[in-house]
Write a protein that binds this DNA or RNA. Structure first.
Lengths: 339, 339
DNA sequence: CTGAAAGCGCTAACAT
DNA sequence: ATGTTAGCGCTTTCAG
């Protein structure tokens, strides 16, 4: 069963294929009668436009490429969910690529997208990317590029992020306002702006309230349940006094929380715990985990909307890039609020 | 800056474009010297193959389309994660489409994929699809199709699922083995095989152990935290005696669990609770939630492997479809195990 | 309102 | 080992 083309429809109706093409694209200069006939025949012959041919000729694919570290993370899958919904409503398809935080994969993804002639690329860069050269291969080709959450700030590229500095600040100030004074910070060892910003917020909050910022209170590692446990274990082993833990990610906070409870320490009365990301489990655990919400779906939607707005510009890289910064939402729960 | 094509490379090197094409595709009949020269020039001119042209001509896109209800669900995003990783390793790109459980969206996704000439479609059908006609538009076009998790069993299409019947059976038998005798089942009102199978397992487990299967113990609704709470509320209001709840999904189980705890009922001592899906929160809540793991990432990987295996066949629809059925893994935790 | 013709960038059969 | 040629199925100018 060969595939139906506009030539087949043309032959049936005894018109030329270019008339058929116009009818199918709802061209104004085609009579209603012809359009109806073409549409009917197309349906009857089970015609499906070949987008490859159409894109090759027109230079537009209506496809965008999305690069994320991993979909097996509620943060990214939720943002992608938001992006896809909006882009889809606006006639775009989405090619998806996971990097697994590897630079080689990121390179492969970009190349694939470029070769597929996507109309734009939306990326949240992996932890291994540093320097701007890497992503310049995209701007050199004049392919529209947007970052979300993890941006490369040296590059004049639009982005949608949350205010991680403010998030770190607000989270820490919340702990301080609850009476905690010796606050440990657990953060990532990856070289990512988001974590540096959260740390800056933590640091500034302490300073603002005349609390010391101490090396021994800051732990870096691979964010995870285990890292949270280990860190608290190490703190206790070295008998460093602390009365609260602010982790840059919820699983890590959860690890800390679990370890504390196992050791019979009362949370939040003796030690307060604060996470980051608003994972689903936070609301369900006991004590419920205080955290910061990143507005994931909104981030995706805003990213898509910004893309749609900018794609109209003839000169994407000529205009100064727009940066949308979403507000983090503090979600105080029981783990950080002693009576 | 016009894009470089094989013609540009050919001109530089004073060969024909077909020599360049061959060199680029590592054709055996091209001298090493020419290949090297072509590769060097390609790199220098920043050449990127145009996959649209190549696919249009060759009839293969190396793109597969994935249809899922929503990425904002840990189950689906996790499976997609597994599919993407494997397909990507094998040179495929992935177009992603979310249906939001809507038939109209599902239709749109299929059409887009067909028009994009994907090499295959992997789908987990939405709750609104019934009958096989819908998906026959794909088989009619001879485009390889695979189902995962939610399949249409009337269609001779390969699939990767878990044994939901067994899962329901094992989960219920576990409850029975723990001494529970009046087990409520909370399930979905959607017309999906997965839920019917879980129910069948529940029913058969009761019958096997000479326990009555009663209408009043079975609640159908939109699976969610709220539905879990409501159902338990209603049970208590109508004073129907029960000693365990088996929900077909973890959030629903969590709702039931929370409501019971709020009412001062001891879980698991007075009432046992069992969920389904092994959501992250289950391990963290108190009491920890017993559940059934669906091997999501493995499901994705198996789906991809099956696809890769079958795509080789010249006659996809000629051979009897292979069905891979994964074993559900019972994860007994505290919510179902009284001392 | 419709037709004719060119060409997007590549693959692949057929030559040489 | 390389060149020639003919499309893949469409969009888009230029004609009429």
């Amino acid at each position: 069963m060969k595939k139906t083309t506009i030539h087949d429809i043309a032959r049936e109706l005894d018109v030329t294929f270019s008339t058929v093409a116009r009818a199918l694209n709802d061209h104004p200069a085609i009579s209603a009668a012809t359009k109806a006939a073409v549409l009917e025949t197309a349906k009857r012959l089970n015609y499906q436009q070949n987008k490859l041919a159409s894109s090759l000729r027109s230079g537009r694919t209506n496809v965008i490429g999305i690069i994320v570290p991993s979909l097996d993370t509620s943060f990214f899958s939720s943002v992608v969910h938001g992006i896809e919904r909006v882009m889809n409503e606006n006639g775009y398809s989405m090619l998806l690529f996971q990097t697994g935080e590897s630079l080689a994969q990121e390179q492969k993804g970009i190349e694939t997208f470029l070769q597929s002639r996507v109309d734009g690329i939306i990326s949240s860069v992996s932890g291994e990317v540093d320097g701007k050269e890497f992503y310049e291969q995209i701007s050199k080709r004049q392919v529209p590029l947007l970052f979300f959450d993890r941006a490369i700030h040296e590059l004049p590229v639009p982005s949608v992020t949350i205010d991680d500095y403010r998030a770190g600040l607000v989270a820490t100030e919340h702990l301080i306002s609850q009476g905690y004074k010796q606050i440990v910070h657990l953060t990532s060892d990856r070289n990512l702006t988001i974590f540096k910003e959260r740390f800056r917020g933590y640091r500034d909050a302490l300073q603002r309230h005349n609390l010391p910022v101490e090396e021994k209170m800051i732990y870096k590692g691979k964010l995870s349940l285990e890292f949270g446990k280990e860190s608290v274990q190490r703190l206790m082993d070295s008998e460093i006094p602390f009365d609260a833990v602010f982790a840059a990610e919820d699983y890590t906070a959860m690890g800390a929380l679990q370890f504390l409870l196992e050791k019979g320490i009362k949370v939040p009365d003796e030690i307060g715990v604060m996470g980051f990301a608003n994972e689903a489990f936070g609301a369900f655990v006991t004590p419920s985990l205080s955290t910061v919400d990143q507005q994931t779906i909104k981030m995706g939607e805003e990213t898509a909307h910004l893309f749609l707005k900018l794609i109209g510009n003839k000169d994407f890289y000529g205009s100064t890039p727009e940066h949308i910064v979403l507000d983090p939402i503090l979600i105080p729960r029981n783990s950080s609020q002693p009576l």
